[in-house]
Design a protein around this nucleic acid. Structure first.
Lengths: 179, 179
DNA sequence: CGCTGAATCTAGCACTGCTAGACATTCGAG
DNA sequence: CTCGAATGTCTAGCAGTGCTAGATTCAGCG
């Protein structure tokens, strides 16, 4: 309930508006109650982030239904749409430095799932390249585009072209298509 | 002087430690003096960011001396080293949402210069791809790697491999090398 | 000397995350 | 059925934040 309220508040007015007092007001409890359920504000943000990762993994999984050549594109578009449509959620997951363990075994399942979905989309085009490392590169490119776009640091009307270039550069098939 | 103090404080203890009071103490003035020179804390951060962009542009320019096939690599390594060695500066420039105009003509010269350096490094390998858009993609990939690495979200011991994959994917030469 | 205007200061506002201690309610043992 | 203990919640407060109003100091100039 606290997590949902925090997420809604962040999505409506941004994380700056998520103060312990406003959050307490929204869940209709007094402020200190939050601290009996979470260690602090960071822990709440972390919980929202993990929940968001589950949501992202689910959406990527749906996109996975689209097979064949456009599967990498489907994953990329899904990822970028998620970042665009849920900016506050994306922020908590990947921008704010909430120290969630990532690579390690004690990383939340939701995060591992999301990465796994990306990996599954990348694997078919990996060729002789290491799939995990290539997925990290794919993810980095998407993350860079997502955050720089959100910060209005890329030309807005070249989004499609950028995506085409990323996919073209990463996928072997496209490379072989080149004359 | 205020800008330098802010940058030093941020580089030593992170942006969280940069409060108007501590900053005032460091420059040996009282707090309100800051507001007669800058509109607010954001303006100070923005000034530090612009200064940082100039620094990045200068380092990229030095790297430009290295010609030929490895020029793209030199730019990428320089960029990532800057992000790694000056994390606070990088944060102000590209992570915190300080609303600096980016694409528009009234963007600070320093930023245009930095982007221009990346563009110059990308152009030789662009082929029939649009150089500006490809530079945006290159930048996004580097930015993604920089921020995800800083947030401990990528496997630390695969940095070189990731860089190789990015350069291999973007450069036409490498593509033609492929059997 | 007297004045003006710029520069600087002290004091304070409304807010933040977080916590100590008081209070109420509920539950289990006798 | 009673009564102590445990649980949950509250009010009040601390130290810190960005920012500002108003008082004060001090230089240069007529």
């Amino acid at each position: 309930m606290i997590i949902d309220a925090a997420r809604e508040l962040a999505e409506e007015e941004g994380w700056d508006a998520v103060t312990t007092r406003r959050l307490a007001e929204k869940v209709e409890y007094s402020q200190p109650v939050l601290y009996s359920h979470f260690k602090g504000k960071d822990a709440i943000v972390r919980a929202v982030a993990v929940q968001g990762a589950g949501e992202l993994a689910r959406q990527l999984r749906k996109a996975r239904a689209i097979r064949g050549r456009s599967r990498l594109r489907a994953a990329a578009e899904t990822y970028l749409e998620f970042a665009r449509d849920r900016p506050a959620l994306y922020d908590a997951m990947f921008v704010q430095q909430v120290d969630i363990p990532f690579g390690t075994p004690e990383a939340p399942q939701e995060l591992a799932d999301a990465f796994g979905e990306l990996l599954a989309a990348v694997e078919p085009v990996a060729g002789d390249r290491d799939p995990e490392t290539l997925t990290e590169v794919f993810w980095s490119a998407l993350h860079g585009i997502a955050t720089l776009t959100h910060g209005k640091r890329l030309r807005p009307d070249h989004h499609e072209a950028r995506l085409d270039l990323v996919l073209g550069a990463l996928s072997l098939a496209q490379q072989e298509d080149r004359p």
